[in-house]
Simulated scan of single mutants.
Amino acid sequence: MTDLKLVIFDVDGTLVDSQGLIVASMTAAFEQIGMTAPSRDAIKSIVGLSLEEGMAVLVPEVDAGEHIRLAEAYRRAYFEQREARGSVATSPFYDGAREVLDLLRADDWTLLAIATGKSKRGVDKLIEGHGLEGYFASAQCSDFHPSKPHPSMIHAALRETGVDSANAVMVGDTTFDMDMAKAAGVKAIGVSWGYHDVAELNADVIINSFAELPAAIQNLLGD
C-alpha cells in the first residue's frame, strides 16, 4: 500500500486537440482504399478505440481484412502529416494542459500516466514533440492492450506505479475512458472540451477547464 496518487490521462481530446489531424488522416485512408469517408462526427465518435476496433464501428459491413487495410492506411496518412508539420502544430495542447501537468508533476506524492488508443510510436512522438520526457511514470497504449473500455491499460498503470486503485483517477473525454475507469475501479473525471457529448459521460465529476482539475482530483482522492 502506498500514499501515492496516480492521475491517468487520455491523450486525444483530453490533453491535445488532434481532431483536425485525425479527421484528415481518416479521410485520406478511406480515399486510398476507394471508400467513402465517414462524417466528422462519426470519426470523432470512435476516437479512443484501437484503430481496428474503430474501423469495425465505422464500416461494419466490410470484413476484418478491410478494417486492417484501413487502419494501416490511416497510420501512414497520420505519420506523413505529423512528420510534415510536427506534433505541436498537429496536436496542440488544450489551454492550461501543460501548466497543470507541470503543477501535478511537481507534487512528490502524485504520479502521472497515459492510457490511450494511440500506438506506442504515436505516444513516443507526441512526448518527444511536446518535450514531455520524464513526465509519465507509465504510458499504456493500444499496441499492448485490448481496446478501451477494457480496463487492461489502467490495471497495467497501477501495477507499474504500485498505486492502489482507490488512489487513482482517470481523466478523459470519451465514454470509453469513463467506462474503462469504472471497470478498473478508479475514479473518473470527464472533460467537457473533448470529442464525446458531455451528457453521455458517466463521470464522477465533469470539469470545464484544466484549471479545475487539481481541485477535482483532491475532492475525489483526498489529501
Rank of each mutant, 00 (worst) to 15 (best):
S165L: 11
T27P: 00
S45H: 12
H145Q: 03
R121V: 00
A64E: 15
D102W: 09
T110H: 04
D107F: 00
I207H: 09
Q32G: 02
E212A: 14
S119W: 01
L201D: 12
L58Q: 05
R76E: 03
S147L: 02
A168W: 12
T36V: 13
G190M: 05
V57E: 14
A113V: 13
P146A: 13
I33Y: 10
D108R: 11
L126W: 05
P151L: 09
V88F: 10
Q32H: 06
G194Y: 00
Q19W: 12
R69W: 00
H196W: 08
P146R: 13
F79D: 05
A28Q: 12
E53Q: 11
V171F: 08
G20W: 03
D177M: 08
G134Y: 07
E133H: 10
T90G: 01
L51M: 15
T175C: 03
E52P: 08
T27H: 10
Y78M: 04
V171K: 09
A56R: 14
G48V: 01
G20M: 05
A211G: 10
G131W: 05
Y94F: 15
G54D: 06
F136I: 04
E72Q: 05
N208E: 15
I217D: 09
R121K: 08
M153Y: 14
L213V: 05
D95Y: 03
A56G: 15
S152L: 04
L58H: 06
A71V: 07
P38A: 13
E212F: 05
L70H: 01
M55L: 11
E83W: 01
V59Q: 00
K44S: 14
F210C: 01
M1E: 10
G190C: 08
Y135E: 13
K187E: 12
K118M: 05
M55Q: 11
M153C: 13
H145Y: 15
L201A: 05
I43R: 02
R75W: 00
D102T: 05
A77Q: 06
V169I: 10
A77Y: 05
W109P: 00
G185D: 13
A137C: 07
I114D: 07
G122K: 00
L132H: 14
V171Q: 11
S142K: 01
R159C: 07
V186W: 14
T90F: 00
R82F: 00
L221S: 10
N202L: 09
V16R: 01
S147N: 00
L4N: 15
E133D: 12
V186L: 13
R75H: 02
M35H: 06
R105N: 11
E53S: 14
E200I: 03
I206E: 04
R159G: 03
S209F: 01
K125W: 03
L126V: 03
T14E: 13
C141L: 00
G122Q: 01
A28F: 02
